[in-house]
Amino acid sequence: MTNIRRSMLFIPGNNPGMLQSADVFDSDSVIFDLEDSVAIDEKASARILVKELFSSIEMSCERIVRINPYDTPFYASDIEAMRQLDIDMILLPKASVESIKDLDQKLIKTNINIMVLIETALGVEQVFEILNASKRCKGLMLGGEDLCVDLNCIRTKKGDELLYARYRVVNASKALSKFAIDTPYTDTFDEEGLKNDTLFSKSIGFDGKASINPRQVHCINEIFNPTLDEINHAKRVLEAKEMALKEGKGVFSLDGKMVDLPIIKRAEKVIELALKLGLMKGTS
């Protein structure tokens, strides 16, 4: 698995038609959902279906399963079933320090990582501690819908109500070198809104964005892709660096601006991403 997570697509866990095609929508990661998209009476049914799916069909994307929350009767059975499977991560909803520690324990002797869903007010305040509570924990997703319920505010398209949480979770995850995925944009017909919301996510440091409909994936990927300008600039930075090395210069500049280590690091990251995504074709 690469560590590219521009998009994470939720797929309902009890829908065979969607499950078997989960990896055709170009989403870097797919979240097979046992929680909100599955009716209470069908929890076991979905768990068995997802288990059989992974036992027989290979997926070309990162495979994440969202289990039911710690305080529900389904939590333990979900983990018990998932720990036998070849999956990459478990997404823990309504994560708290207590629940992530418990999950970490239950995943002993597996290679399964953890990703936390930060969707309570307490979760936002404790996000650093939660992320830091388990070595298995590789990153987080912000859950805007539930958080707004907890905050007792209305979830708007503009999303001012989430500003604090967004900045805070990004900062906490970057402080611990973990990834951060932004909450999904819930109006699946509003492409312009999705675009703006995703541009904002990228601008404040999120690594990717969740989506609740396959239609959204393309737009999200495009936005998180390095742009042609970014790629070309990065190439020039690295070329200039090579030149400087040959000429034995420690410090060098490009277009009149001094190029220092952060710029070089950033350029290397852009090129690495572009290479992995096959975006180098057609660049100058």
């Binding site: 078997q20 076991a44 049914s45 068995i48 288990k51 059989e52 027989s56």
Partner: peptide
């Protein structure tokens, strides 16, 4: 038009 994995899963669920 279920695939094999779905058939298996549904039978197991019904058995349980």
């Amino acid at each position: 038009g279920a695939l094999d994995y779905t058939i298996r899963a549904r039978v197991i669920t019904a058995i349980n």
